[in-house]
Design a protein around this nucleic acid. Structure first.
Lengths: 123, 123
DNA sequence: CTTTGTGCAAAGCCTTTGCAATTTT
DNA sequence: AAAATTGCAAAGGCTTTGCACAAAG
Protein backbone atom coordinates (compact mmCIF):
# COMPACT_ATOMS: atom_id res chain seq x y z
CA UNK A 1 0.00 0.00 0.00
CA UNK A 2 2.50 2.57 1.14
CA UNK A 3 4.86 1.56 -1.61
CA UNK A 4 2.71 3.18 -4.23
CA UNK A 5 2.57 6.55 -2.54
CA UNK A 6 4.74 9.28 -3.97
CA UNK A 7 4.57 11.62 -1.05
CA UNK A 8 3.77 12.22 2.58
CA UNK A 9 0.28 11.24 3.66
CA UNK A 10 -1.47 11.37 7.02
CA UNK A 11 -2.74 8.26 8.76
CA UNK A 12 -6.29 9.35 8.10
CA UNK A 13 -5.58 9.92 4.42
CA UNK A 14 -3.99 6.51 4.11
CA UNK A 15 -6.90 4.96 5.93
CA UNK A 16 -9.41 6.66 3.67
CA UNK A 17 -7.49 5.57 0.59
CA UNK A 18 -7.44 1.97 1.76
CA UNK A 19 -11.16 1.99 2.47
CA UNK A 20 -11.84 3.57 -0.89
CA UNK A 21 -9.82 0.76 -2.44
CA UNK A 22 -12.04 -1.76 -0.71
CA UNK A 23 -9.80 -2.76 2.19
CA UNK A 24 -11.79 -3.43 5.34
CA UNK A 25 -9.31 -1.93 7.75
CA UNK A 26 -9.71 0.10 10.92
CA UNK A 27 -8.16 3.46 11.60
CA UNK A 28 -6.47 2.13 14.71
CA UNK A 29 -4.70 -0.55 12.72
CA UNK A 30 -3.38 2.00 10.28
CA UNK A 31 -2.04 4.07 13.14
CA UNK A 32 -0.55 1.05 14.86
CA UNK A 33 1.26 -0.10 11.76
CA UNK A 34 2.51 3.34 10.87
CA UNK A 35 3.92 3.82 14.34
CA UNK A 36 5.62 0.46 14.09
CA UNK A 37 7.04 1.16 10.67
CA UNK A 38 8.26 4.54 11.85
CA UNK A 39 10.07 2.91 14.77
CA UNK A 40 11.84 0.45 12.52
CA UNK A 41 12.72 3.21 10.10
CA UNK A 42 10.62 1.74 7.34
CA UNK A 43 8.80 5.02 6.91
CA UNK A 44 9.70 8.61 7.62
CA UNK A 45 7.44 10.78 9.71
CA UNK A 46 7.20 14.49 9.70
CA UNK A 47 4.79 16.93 11.20
CA UNK A 48 2.94 19.07 8.72
CA UNK A 49 2.50 22.76 9.37
CA UNK A 50 -1.05 22.11 10.55
CA UNK A 51 0.27 19.72 13.17
CA UNK A 52 -0.82 16.50 11.52
CA UNK A 53 1.75 13.74 11.23
CA UNK A 54 2.46 12.50 7.73
CA UNK A 55 4.22 9.33 6.65
CA UNK A 56 6.29 8.42 3.63
CA UNK A 57 8.14 5.27 2.70
CA UNK A 58 11.67 6.06 1.59
CA UNK A 59 15.30 5.07 1.85
CA UNK A 60 16.79 4.21 5.23
CA UNK A 61 19.88 6.34 4.99
CA UNK A 62 19.93 9.77 6.55
CA UNK A 63 18.31 12.27 4.24
CA UNK A 64 15.88 15.13 4.08
CA UNK A 65 12.96 16.05 1.86
CA UNK A 66 11.70 18.53 -0.62
CA UNK A 67 7.98 18.42 0.00
CA UNK A 68 5.12 19.93 -1.96
CA UNK A 69 3.01 22.00 0.38
CA UNK A 70 -0.09 21.27 -1.63
CA UNK A 71 -0.05 17.64 -2.74
CA UNK A 72 2.53 16.17 -0.37
CA UNK A 73 4.76 14.92 -3.18
CA UNK A 74 8.23 14.36 -1.76
CA UNK A 75 11.74 14.10 -3.15
CA UNK A 76 14.64 12.85 -1.08
CA UNK A 77 17.54 15.24 -0.76
CA UNK A 78 20.88 15.06 0.96
CA UNK A 79 23.06 17.88 2.18
CA UNK A 80 26.37 16.64 3.55
CA UNK A 81 27.56 20.20 4.03
CA UNK A 82 24.53 21.02 6.16
CA UNK A 83 25.04 17.97 8.32
CA UNK A 84 28.63 18.90 9.08
CA UNK A 85 27.72 22.51 9.67
CA UNK A 86 24.96 21.62 12.13
CA UNK A 87 27.11 19.19 14.06
CA UNK A 88 30.06 21.56 14.27
CA UNK A 89 27.90 24.43 15.37
CA UNK A 90 26.19 22.44 18.09
CA UNK A 91 29.50 21.16 19.36
CA UNK A 92 30.86 24.67 19.54
CA UNK A 93 28.06 25.49 21.92
CA UNK A 94 28.82 22.49 24.06
CA UNK A 95 25.80 20.52 22.96
CA UNK A 96 25.90 16.74 22.85
CA UNK A 97 23.68 14.08 21.35
CA UNK A 98 23.10 16.21 18.32
CA UNK A 99 20.38 15.67 15.77
CA UNK A 100 18.58 17.94 13.41
CA UNK A 101 15.51 18.35 11.27
CA UNK A 102 15.58 19.94 7.85
CA UNK A 103 12.74 20.03 5.39
CA UNK A 104 12.28 22.18 2.34
CA UNK A 105 8.73 23.07 1.37
CA UNK A 106 7.38 24.55 -1.82
CA UNK A 107 4.85 24.02 -4.55
CA UNK A 108 5.82 21.28 -6.98
CA UNK A 109 5.77 22.14 -10.70
CA UNK A 110 2.31 20.66 -11.12
CA UNK A 111 0.77 22.43 -8.14
CA UNK A 112 2.51 25.68 -9.04
CA UNK A 113 0.10 25.92 -11.94
CA UNK A 114 -3.10 25.29 -10.06
CA UNK A 115 -2.68 26.48 -6.51
CA UNK A 116 -2.65 30.13 -5.54
CA UNK A 117 0.56 31.03 -3.74
CA UNK A 118 0.25 31.34 -0.01
CA UNK A 119 0.55 34.80 1.40
CA UNK A 120 2.03 33.99 4.77
CA UNK A 121 5.25 35.68 5.65
CA UNK A 122 8.51 33.75 5.42
CA UNK A 123 9.14 31.21 8.23
CA UNK B 1 6.27 37.08 30.97
CA UNK B 2 7.66 35.55 27.84
CA UNK B 3 10.59 37.91 27.91
CA UNK B 4 12.13 36.10 30.81
CA UNK B 5 12.07 32.70 29.19
CA UNK B 6 15.33 31.40 27.80
CA UNK B 7 13.87 28.68 25.67
CA UNK B 8 10.90 27.13 23.96
CA UNK B 9 7.93 26.42 26.19
CA UNK B 10 4.51 24.98 25.48
CA UNK B 11 1.32 26.91 26.09
CA UNK B 12 0.50 24.64 28.97
CA UNK B 13 3.94 25.10 30.52
CA UNK B 14 3.65 28.85 30.22
CA UNK B 15 0.19 28.73 31.71
CA UNK B 16 1.35 26.63 34.62
CA UNK B 17 4.28 28.95 35.24
CA UNK B 18 2.01 31.98 35.29
CA UNK B 19 -0.39 30.33 37.71
CA UNK B 20 2.50 29.28 39.92
CA UNK B 21 3.62 32.88 39.90
CA UNK B 22 0.21 33.97 41.11
CA UNK B 23 -1.32 35.21 37.87
CA UNK B 24 -5.00 34.41 37.64
CA UNK B 25 -5.05 33.59 33.95
CA UNK B 26 -6.94 31.03 31.91
CA UNK B 27 -5.39 28.52 29.58
CA UNK B 28 -7.49 29.78 26.69
CA UNK B 29 -6.11 33.27 27.10
CA UNK B 30 -2.57 31.97 27.01
CA UNK B 31 -3.32 30.12 23.79
CA UNK B 32 -5.08 33.10 22.28
CA UNK B 33 -2.22 35.44 23.00
CA UNK B 34 0.43 33.03 21.83
CA UNK B 35 -1.37 32.51 18.54
CA UNK B 36 -1.62 36.26 18.13
CA UNK B 37 2.02 36.83 18.94
CA UNK B 38 3.00 34.08 16.57
CA UNK B 39 1.02 35.73 13.77
CA UNK B 40 2.71 39.05 14.29
CA UNK B 41 6.09 37.37 14.47
CA UNK B 42 6.61 38.36 18.06
CA UNK B 43 7.31 34.77 19.01
CA UNK B 44 8.59 31.78 17.11
CA UNK B 45 6.66 28.54 17.13
CA UNK B 46 7.96 25.11 16.54
CA UNK B 47 6.54 21.67 16.97
CA UNK B 48 8.36 19.49 19.44
CA UNK B 49 9.06 15.87 18.63
CA UNK B 50 6.12 14.85 20.81
CA UNK B 51 3.80 17.00 18.71
CA UNK B 52 3.30 19.78 21.20
CA UNK B 53 3.76 23.33 19.97
CA UNK B 54 6.35 25.40 21.78
CA UNK B 55 6.87 29.14 21.77
CA UNK B 56 9.88 31.35 22.18
CA UNK B 57 10.34 35.09 21.97
CA UNK B 58 13.28 35.98 19.74
CA UNK B 59 14.51 38.22 16.98
CA UNK B 60 12.31 38.91 13.98
CA UNK B 61 14.86 38.24 11.30
CA UNK B 62 14.99 34.86 9.61
CA UNK B 63 16.93 32.43 11.75
CA UNK B 64 16.94 28.94 13.13
CA UNK B 65 17.55 27.42 16.54
CA UNK B 66 19.79 25.18 18.50
CA UNK B 67 17.40 23.69 21.02
CA UNK B 68 18.05 21.59 24.09
CA UNK B 69 16.00 18.45 23.89
CA UNK B 70 15.73 18.27 27.64
CA UNK B 71 15.18 21.77 29.01
CA UNK B 72 14.08 23.63 25.88
CA UNK B 73 16.87 26.18 26.13
CA UNK B 74 17.30 27.79 22.71
CA UNK B 75 20.03 29.67 20.90
CA UNK B 76 19.42 31.52 17.67
CA UNK B 77 21.55 30.45 14.77
CA UNK B 78 21.83 31.56 11.17
CA UNK B 79 23.05 29.62 8.19
CA UNK B 80 23.20 31.75 5.07
CA UNK B 81 24.81 28.92 3.12
CA UNK B 82 22.00 26.58 4.01
CA UNK B 83 19.37 29.08 2.95
CA UNK B 84 20.94 29.49 -0.46
CA UNK B 85 21.46 25.79 -0.87
CA UNK B 86 17.82 25.00 -0.04
CA UNK B 87 16.46 27.65 -2.37
CA UNK B 88 18.70 26.65 -5.26
CA UNK B 89 17.88 22.99 -4.83
CA UNK B 90 14.16 23.56 -4.75
CA UNK B 91 14.33 25.76 -7.82
CA UNK B 92 16.26 23.12 -9.69
CA UNK B 93 13.35 20.80 -9.12
CA UNK B 94 10.89 23.35 -10.41
CA UNK B 95 9.45 24.16 -7.02
CA UNK B 96 8.10 27.61 -6.28
CA UNK B 97 7.09 29.42 -3.12
CA UNK B 98 9.98 27.89 -1.27
CA UNK B 99 10.36 27.85 2.48
CA UNK B 100 12.18 25.57 4.85
CA UNK B 101 12.46 24.44 8.42
CA UNK B 102 15.76 23.74 10.11
CA UNK B 103 16.27 23.04 13.77
CA UNK B 104 19.23 21.54 15.53
CA UNK B 105 18.54 19.53 18.67
CA UNK B 106 20.88 18.32 21.34
CA UNK B 107 21.54 18.34 25.05
CA UNK B 108 22.82 21.64 26.32
CA UNK B 109 25.99 21.61 28.44
CA UNK B 110 23.99 21.67 31.66
CA UNK B 111 21.63 18.87 30.68
CA UNK B 112 24.46 16.81 29.22
CA UNK B 113 25.56 16.23 32.79
CA UNK B 114 22.26 15.14 34.23
CA UNK B 115 20.22 13.52 31.52
CA UNK B 116 20.89 10.05 30.14
CA UNK B 117 21.46 10.19 26.39
CA UNK B 118 18.56 9.08 24.28
CA UNK B 119 19.03 5.87 22.37
CA UNK B 120 16.84 6.56 19.37
CA UNK B 121 18.43 6.22 15.99
CA UNK B 122 19.43 9.33 14.07
CA UNK B 123 16.61 11.24 12.30
C1' DC C 1 -4.01 -24.17 21.57
C1' DT C 2 -1.17 -20.23 22.04
C1' DT C 3 0.23 -16.09 19.92
C1' DT C 4 -0.30 -12.33 17.06
C1' DG C 5 -2.92 -8.99 14.76
C1' DT C 6 -7.47 -6.49 13.91
C1' DG C 7 -11.83 -3.76 14.46
C1' DC C 8 -14.61 -0.98 17.04
C1' DA C 9 -15.52 2.20 20.44
C1' DA C 10 -13.97 4.80 24.24
C1' DA C 11 -10.59 7.61 26.26
C1' DG C 12 -6.63 11.01 26.11
C1' DC C 13 -4.30 15.14 24.89
C1' DC C 14 -3.53 19.52 22.86
C1' DT C 15 -5.98 23.22 20.97
C1' DT C 16 -9.93 26.04 19.64
C1' DT C 17 -14.44 28.08 20.28
C1' DG C 18 -18.95 29.89 22.47
C1' DC C 19 -20.61 32.77 25.72
C1' DA C 20 -21.27 35.45 29.68
C1' DA C 21 -18.75 38.41 32.68
C1' DT C 22 -15.08 41.80 33.34
C1' DT C 23 -12.15 45.35 32.06
C1' DT C 24 -10.79 49.12 29.06
C1' DT C 25 -11.51 53.20 26.27
C1' DA D 1 -21.99 52.89 26.80
C1' DA D 2 -19.44 50.44 23.29
C1' DA D 3 -15.49 47.60 22.36
C1' DA D 4 -12.00 44.58 23.47
C1' DT D 5 -10.22 41.00 26.61
C1' DT D 6 -10.70 37.17 29.75
C1' DG D 7 -12.21 32.76 32.23
C1' DC D 8 -14.53 28.80 32.22
C1' DA D 9 -16.39 24.98 30.19
C1' DA D 10 -17.58 22.52 26.18
C1' DA D 11 -16.39 20.97 21.72
C1' DG D 12 -13.02 19.52 17.94
C1' DG D 13 -9.39 16.91 15.78
C1' DC D 14 -5.69 13.72 15.82
C1' DT D 15 -3.87 9.78 18.15
C1' DT D 16 -3.74 5.99 21.50
C1' DT D 17 -5.66 2.31 24.26
C1' DG D 18 -8.89 -1.50 26.13
C1' DC D 19 -10.96 -5.39 24.96
C1' DA D 20 -13.19 -9.00 22.62
C1' DC D 21 -12.69 -11.51 18.40
C1' DA D 22 -10.58 -13.40 14.33
C1' DA D 23 -6.36 -14.99 11.97
C1' DA D 24 -1.95 -17.20 11.99
C1' DG D 25 1.55 -20.51 13.60
Amino acid sequence: MLTQLDGFRSAQEIHAAMRARGDHVGLATVYRNLVLMAETGEVDVLTREDGEQVYFRCSRQHHHHLVCRSCGHAIEITGPAVERWADALAEQHGYTNISHTLEVFGLCPKCSLTVPPHTDGPP
